[in-house]
Each structure stands twice: as C-alpha cells, then as structure tokens.
Design a protein around this nucleic acid. Structure first.
Lengths: 229, 229
DNA sequence: AAATTTACATGACATTTGTCAGTTTTTGAA
DNA sequence: TTCAAAAACTGACAAATGTCATGTAAATTT
C-alpha cells in the first residue's frame, strides 16, 4: 500500500495541504500507519496524546461519556479528518474518545512534527485555524439545534447528513450503517425513542429500512419535517 | 481614557499578548474605541465583519436566532474576549449576533491588521489557535450538557458559572444581572419553565432573589442537584 | 401621578421524551 | 446449524417540558 503523504489524496481535505514539499516529507517520514478494527478505540477520553491521527479510510465516532454513563457522539470523522489536533495544540488531555465505526486505516503523526511546523510555517497555522474556525461554527449550530429542535427533527437531520457526507448504495440505503443506539447517541435521546421515531418515519414513507440499514425515501418530506411542518 | 493597547490590561487575557512591541503598536494605531449602550447590537448574524471587537468593559451576549424565531445565547463575552475572530479568520459572515447586556466599551481592530499579523507571526497564530481550541472544547461540553442534563441542572450550572465568572456583590447577589428570558435562552428552555425553576430553587433555599437580581444561597445544594441527587 | 408597556409569575393542560419491562429478531460464535 | 448474546422493537406509564391563558409587579413614558 502506498503510504507516502506526498501522494496521499486524503491530504487535500485537511490542513496538511498547506505544507511545503520538505515539510510534507518530514511528516511522511515520522508518521506511522495503523489499522484499526471496527469497535476498537483509537484513543480514550482524558488520554494525553503524543500526536494526531489522520484518517485514511473508514469512519470513527468521537464521543464523550457523561456523568450518568451515557455516551454522546459529538462528531464523525472520516477521510482526511485529523483527530486529536485540538488536544495536541492546546497541550491538554483529550476530551473525546475515538472509536472505529468500521474498519479503518489511520496515520499517526507525532506531536513534535505538528508543533514544529505550526511554529515555523504560518500558512499551516492559518490553515489549521480555518479548519478549527469551521468546526467551532458547526459546534455552535449543533448547540442551537439541540436546544431548539425536537428529537424527530434532529434525527431527520442526521439521516440527511449521513446521505450527504457518505452517500448511498445502489439500492438507496445509506453507505454508513449505524446502530439505533449510535443514532440515539448522536441526536441525544434514548435508544427506545430513536427506534420509535424510525418506525414512525418508516410508516410515513419518509425512510425505508432493511435490518440495520436505513435509506431515505422522501427527502422532501424529511426536509419539511425538519423545517417544522 | 487611556486607549493604547500597549498599556491595556485586558490584552493579557487574549491572544494579543503574543504580539511584539511593534505589532502591538500597529494594532493600537489601527484600532477604534467604541462605546455601546445596553441593548445595542455590535454586529448582526450574517454580517460580514471588517475586523474584530476586543471587549474592554461590559458584557455582550453572542446569540443565534433559530428558524422559529427563538434566540439562543451561545456565549457571553466580557473583559478581554475578542469577538468576531472566527468569522474574520474563516473569511465568512458571522454566525452569531452580539448584543450588549450592559454598557460596554470595545475596541474595533481592522481585519487587515489581524490577518497580516497572523501570516507573519506564528506565535500569534498559535496563540489564537490555543484559544480557539479551548472554545471548541467548551462547545463540545455544552453539546453534551444540552443533550444529557435536565433544564434544572443546566440552570443551576448557569448560576454557578455566572458567580465564578463575574462574582457577586456584598449582599451575595450575582454581579451580572440577566433577565429571566436571557437565562431561558442560555439554558435552552421556555421563559415560563425557567421562571418556574427559579421559584422552585428559591423555595428550596438554593438561591435568593431581589427583583431581577439572583444570588446563590446554597452552593453545595446546587452542586448536588447538578450532579443528579 | 397616571398610563402604558414590559417583565415576572402561576395555573391548567398538551406534548414530548424517558424509563421499565418484556418480546422478537438478528448476529456472531461454538 | 445451533445456541447464546446482542440489538431491535413494542407497550404502558411517568416525568419533564412547552404552550396558552391570565394575572400581577415593575419599569418607563407621558
């Protein structure tokens, strides 16, 4: 498998694209390719990271455990997303846990490489800033959604988000298959409530299911529901 | 009034402290001091900013309007907080609206000054990154709180947060006085629910009120409530 | 000071969501 | 293939929260 960063297509999606040829070579030399099986954790909440993880393939959920033991999935990371960047930059322990949703390959890039480049290449720093600024905006949007939309609306949005981000297969089912529990942990509800709403959506012809798989049948209808009709 | 950034104490709290003497002088020369009356807006949601606002005095609420017309207060900005940074860096319109909660003085720093410094001084860029990394972590925590804590718990947290951030007067009332409606918009609930919970807290001896003013009477009790007892 | 507006407060009720208890289905290992 | 475990599902009920209606207090204007 080709593992030189210089020829890695994934890099185009993240802040590493601001690196010079030489810097990229350094990253490439210091990185370690790892494969992670579905369900395995890449790092735990509260862990001190020695570097960041660049997702090459597969999808990871970044989640946080609350006091009462419930998991909340804050975001999904796939192709090109760099995980652990926040912790490494702030020099803090992670506040999220990363677990593979399906089989993954990730590149571990040591902390020093990142920090050195940040301190010497303003372009890279600004590029990272832009990404983080975007994430921050997204986070604020999620906060408002959590506070002002119903569980139904949030779940509808989740389906559309998955379709947009990961696409659907030839039969119209979402490429990324999540468990009902994972859906519940994304929209912030109990799995029973989540399951009930899925049944209701199915009855209304908004979605279709086949085992764990979910497909969007009536995108317009879902959009109306999200808008509050 | 002293308006040189070089001698502004507020600067110590934000990323401007990473600037060199010369850079600071440039910021100082390009900035404009503005005073904002309680209730006035500093910028609106969706506006394109020509610069950032550094809060010198007073408190501003940063909020977002949802589709159904409800306001959600995402964060409060006081002493030393730089508002609009995210939008300027990402070169996007603002996603939040900033309104003065009490009389304020803010310094407007033009976009160019910020961008130039970002591109030439990696220390500054990294410092901004650290701040943004911190904000992002906070935002993630809020998301999990919104999804897993009750309105009562969130309101209790809000009171403690205000005490910690802005202190209390000699009679034990919070220095920063918010309306019931503003509290509701922070914790993400209806103002009626908010008022009801305030009454309940008062009955239980957790807090005391005097008109709009609110004071914490039993911090331990509030903490227990937040923890779920 | 009177009038008007705004914020605060409370009751009654509907809706949403969570919890518990149990059944069925699916999945994965032996 | 069979069995055990996990995930999906359903019903019944309780708790949390939102909404509407209405009244009262406080602040602001005239």
């Amino acid at each position: 498998m080709e593992t030189r960063c210089e020829s890695c297509i994934v890099r185009q999606y993240n802040s590493l694209r601001a690196l010079s040829k030489d810097e990229l070579k350094e990253v490439s030399n210091s990185k370690v390719l790892k494969s992670v099986k579905k369900g395995e954790s890449i790092f735990e909440e509260g862990e001190k990271l020695d570097g960041v993880y660049c997702v090459r393939d597969g999808v990871s959920k970044l989640s946080k455990l609350s006091a009462n033991g419930k998991e909340h999935i804050v975001k999904l990371a796939s192709n090109g997303v760099i995980m652990g960047q926040r912790s490494v930059i702030a020099d803090e322990t992670t506040h999220l846990r990363a677990v593979a949703i399906n089989d993954m390959t990730v590149c571990f890039i040591p902390k020093n490489t990142i920090i050195n480049t940040l301190n010497t290449n303003p372009n890279f720093a600004v590029e990272v800033l832009r990404h983080m600024a975007h994430d921050l905006k997204e986070a604020d949007n999620v906060i408002v959604n959590m506070s002002q939309k119903t569980v139904k609306q949030r779940l509808g949005e989740a389906f559309l988000y998955l379709k947009k981000s990961y696409g659907e297969d030839k039969d119209g089912f979402l490429n990324l298959t999540l468990s009902r529990d994972e859906y519940a942990n994304i929209v912030g509800t109990a799995s029973e409530s989540c399951i009930r709403i899925i049944s209701e959506f199915k009855k209304k012809g908004l979605i279709k299911t086949a085992g764990k798989k979910i497909g969007i049948s009536d995108e317009k209808g879902l959009l109306d529901l999200i808008a509050g009709f």
